[in-house]
Amino acid sequence: MFAIDVALCTYRRPGVAATLQSLAAQVLPTGVSMRVIVADNDDEPSARERVLAAGAGLTLHYVHAPARNISVARNACLEAATAPAIAFLDDDEVAPPTWLRALLTTMEQTGAPIVLGPVRAQYGDDLPAWLKAADLHSTRPAIRRDGTIDTGYSCNVLFRRDILNGLRFDPARGVTGGEDDAFFSQLYRRGHRIAFAADAMLEEVVPPHRAQLRWLLRRAFRNGQTYASIRLAAGDWRIALATRAGAKGATCGAAAAANVWSGPRWRRALVRGALHAGTVARVLGKRDLRLYS
């Protein structure tokens, strides 16, 4: 019997019930078992009753991890995990019945100890048309020209627990975001390969407060700051990193101006430019934006 712990962090989000219900519908391969760990990041255990009710039928472990810091919640999940493999998804995502099977199949076929899946954003009819056309909320890994993936995310991932060797999510990044990028980048630098399972799709509804260009720009800027800190830790030269990012940012600015007639295109170029601007800002010492409270 092969066991998987599915980890889920939650903070005052009723949608966690739908996430748990989708996990209860997973169709697992013969000989594979699943336990769900839910870490409640609220000051009070506000999600406890909702989680226990929605998780009926699941093998469920609820833990209260107060701090309003996502790294604290993620680390509580790691501390509670006992299975050989751990999967993470978010509390606003819904998994099809084949999700976990697809991640596990790719892990077995590739031998990679870390497997990422994509997240497809769902846009309501009341949101701007450009938002769906630009599709800046969906998540996929950045795959380099040689086919390698050198970082990851926690919204759709399966990894072997034995590769951690005490590694935990950085609490200092738990209120800025980017804690998962840094976590998986460290694992990659330790020599652990990352694979991609294109068919391990999750779906996430985009809420109105995130359906704004300002929010997308801020997130991209902070992503650039995270990228810069990761590259600096890997030994990149500051001047070279800032020069490359500055040139790419200028190119994105030109692309935004050239495509001003197209709502999706200029916004997409502007958001990409914000990422490069964040890289330059981090190299110059600007403190990371705090996206979460």
Rank of each mutant, 00 (worst) to 15 (best):
I70H: 08
D43T: 07
G178C: 10
N259V: 06
P207E: 00
G166A: 03
M201C: 13
H209Q: 10
A3P: 02
L187A: 00
D90P: 13
P171S: 06
F2H: 10
A73T: 07
R190Q: 15
V205C: 05
R238N: 07
E79D: 14
A133Y: 11
A281P: 01
L78W: 01
R267E: 05
S46V: 12
P208I: 07
R12W: 07
A247W: 04
H192G: 04
G224T: 00
D162N: 12
D125W: 12
A200P: 01
A233W: 09
A53I: 07
L158G: 09
D135E: 03
L270I: 00
Y188Q: 09
V206I: 13
A250G: 06
R13E: 13
C77D: 05
R222C: 13
L100M: 11
D135W: 05
F159I: 00
G178P: 09
W215L: 00
I70A: 06
S33K: 06
Y11I: 10
V280K: 08
S33P: 02
P208L: 09
A233I: 05
A250F: 14
A83E: 03
G235C: 10
D5I: 05
I37F: 02
T19Y: 11
A198T: 14
R287N: 06
D91G: 10
S138D: 09
V63R: 10
L52W: 13
R160D: 07
P45K: 05
V51F: 04
L58S: 08
P141Y: 09
D199E: 14
A73Q: 08
R282G: 01
F88E: 00
R35S: 12
L60E: 03
E108D: 07
V206N: 02
N41F: 04
A211Y: 00
D170E: 11
R265E: 15
A195E: 11
A256T: 07
R265I: 09
T176V: 10
F183Q: 11
R74G: 03
T148E: 15
L104W: 08
Q21A: 11
A129N: 01
G152Y: 11
L8E: 06
G249K: 03
T82D: 10
W130F: 09
A228T: 11
G224M: 02
A240C: 12
F159N: 01
G147K: 02
D42Q: 04
H276E: 05
W237R: 12
A269P: 07
G253V: 03
A133P: 09
E79S: 11
D170W: 05
D125H: 15
V271F: 00
F183L: 12
A18M: 13
I37V: 10
D162E: 15
L136V: 13
E108C: 08
F196A: 09
T105D: 15
L131I: 10
Y11L: 15
G124T: 00
N75V: 00
